[in-house]
Design a protein around this nucleic acid. Structure first.
Lengths: 149, 149
DNA sequence: TATAAGGAGATAAAATTGGTCCTAAAGGTG
DNA sequence: CACCTTTAGGACCAATTTTATCTCCTTATA
């Protein structure tokens, strides 16, 4: 349950690669795909989404390619995931008022709302910069644990 | 992203109905399906899973049907969801060591672990009894008013 | 005129959302 | 006891949707 698809996985791998490049360096989709080990044609569409949402800047033609549109420190994991997977919604009932049966929202409505809030909060607190940084995961874990009290 | 399927939705609706019955009362799958407004043939399979996992007790033949195997107060939402949707896993990489690339786990590994822990914790804290209970006093009030008329 | 992204499909495989039909168990009846 | 009805168990089927790619054509640009 609640699984990220390959699209989300590839999106993260791809944008982390971009974040690891020297600032301003332009990367080709072919280069990113090779480095992140993801299918190029698939990644191309993922980066189209990124560009449309203003996460990356794209340029066509010779010398074209992709660059982060903002510093990696102000791009959150949530933005990246939602860019390709859509909003984080543990149950459809959180979208339209689609869970109303007999005039009442579904019994678990408040629980799903809580799950959504929690997950969004976690992903909002993770920047692409922190993921791109070369450090051991223990440190990252300790940090987020500390933030969460 | 991270959506519960209809199977999970139906599972919750179905077991809540069971929890709302007088203790020991046996319910037929046809009855549960009608009350919860879910396809009977689909619900039958869901309850098979419940039975196999010991969430409900089933009996065949005349007088047969389903009863909760434990008090609703000690059945958690997590158990119900995992019974039909499988373990709560926001990313495949949390299962086998399938996210290793170049000897390293994926960059976001710790984040997914944290998400998993959080969600599991929330769902573990919700009992079917709490979901089955009448939520607001207004409803109860309206009901007894209607009865007294 | 290369080059590289944008965008519109096309497609195969897998998962979802059901349904059908037969079997097995349990109770009731003559 | 034999038999019939009832009700869950289980195997299998099928339509639809989603996932995961790929291909090809267009557009912008150095």
């Amino acid at each position: 349950m609640m699984e990220l698809t390959r699209k989300g996985e590839y999106a993260i791998r791809g944008i982390i690669y971009l974040a690891q490049q020297p600032p301003g360096r332009v990367s080709l989709i072919s280069e990113i795909a090779a480095a992140a080990e993801v299918p190029q044609s698939f990644l191309a569409k993922i980066f189209q989404s990124f560009a449309k949402l203003g996460l990356v800047t794209s340029a066509r033609g010779t010398g074209g390619g992709f660059v982060l549109a903002r510093p990696a420190s102000v791009i959150t994991l949530r933005e990246v995931v939602e860019a390709v997977e859509g909003p984080i919604v543990p149950n459809r009932c959180l979208l339209g008022s689609a869970c109303e049966r007999g005039g009442e929202p579904c019994r678990a409505h408040a629980v799903w709302k809580q799950v959504q809030t929690e997950v969004v909060h976690i992903l909002d607190d993770v920047t692409i910069e922190s993921l791109a940084r070369n450090r051991n995961l223990d440190e990252v874990t300790m940090e987020s644990l500390a933030r969460n009290r």
